[in-house]
Design a protein around this nucleic acid. Sequence first.
DNA 1: TTTCTGTATATAAGTTCTTATATATGCAAT
DNA 2: ATTGCATATATAAGAACTTATATACAGAAA
Lengths: 195, 195
Amino acid sequence: MSLKYALLGFLNHSSMTGYDLKQHFDRSVRHFWSANLSQMYPTLSQMEKDGLLTMEVENQEKHPPRKVYRITGAGRRELKQWLAEPIGLPSLRIPFLVKVFFGGCLEKEEIIALLKDHLSRHRALMDRYLQIRKEIMEHPESKGMEKEFFFGNLTLGVGIKIEQAWIDWLEESVANIEEMNESGVRGGVLTDQRG
Amino acid sequence: MSLKYALLGFLNHSSMTGYDLKQHFDRSVRHFWSANLSQMYPTLSQMEKDGLLTMEVENQEKHPPRKVYRITGAGRRELKQWLAEPIGLPSLRIPFLVKVFFGGCLEKEEIIALLKDHLSRHRALMDRYLQIRKEIMEHPESKGMEKEFFFGNLTLGVGIKIEQAWIDWLEESVANIEEMNESGVRGGVLTDQRG
DNA sequence: TTTCTGTATATAAGTTCTTATATATGCAAT
DNA sequence: ATTGCATATATAAGAACTTATATACAGAAA
């Protein structure tokens, strides 16, 4: 459960509510970790029971009370320990590739439409990443935030590299399949690859 | 639930048992979809109830009976329909990037160790992919399997591209951080990037 | 001779994550 | 006026997935 450690990571920087944490997630780690509030609230309250966090209620006049979570010494130790531990590669689940794998069941036009649709999604995501990078770069007011800035930018970097890999592959695949003649796969990429 | 459709995809090619399906998964789609037998068995039996599959028991002398699943017309229709539908990007969960994001909490040596460990994992995976590609290419006995071969090879291609992206990024990041001077991030990549 | 791997089934318990629902208010836009 | 968005909490139900456990035999390796 890395959600726990992601929460500890943000709370190590500053104390906040579940709602605040959700904002931070969506603004900075969304490209490699997402979480719903409905998952975060019970996780936070469990972490409090486990002594990793303390909670303080701040009453507000016009809004529901804020439950502000603060990391404890035990929380910091557990975060630090987890961060330093090596971790294996996550097992991926990419439904789109299931579709491509069984693409033989589809007409040529259908598989091309599928690839082009996915290409536009990856291009849109790439645009968002590049926009975020641009905003980060033009942000000189990050005094005392050098480390946060540096590592955030680093993780954005791998996102951009992976999106570029997807875009390249999708463009090549569309071109490959479009060039295939109508007699099926025989006249296309397959025979080319075998020499 | 794409597991259902992956099962339909394999069963569309030939009838088999849960155990056989597990072998097929591990040999061909593992890099973008994995499943445990304990998840597959109940899923298959549910699919049978839903009329997507039929099941026939084959008794064996020395082993437990084989439950052979066969796709139905309804199953084929549902597979075909799902395959042609566009699908969004999956939300990723990469615990390693959570660690990198909060890398500011670690010593320089610790973060470098983390990156190098991950680099070796990605290199090992890349080696496996290249080995599989080599085996596919040297396999001329795939008569009548051109389409299966073609699309299987295609999905392997994106796996290779993404592994290369990871390897490049990890190598660059290790070099970047190693070159940083001991006064922190100020003398390193951060200032370089700002000009 | 024992241990490990492979064939073949399956359930139970637990974790993680998603989707739907509920409450209550302020503020801005249409 | 009303819709939608933002603030702030939270529960319930269910889907999806992991890990542990169970049975039973064959064949190969140590």
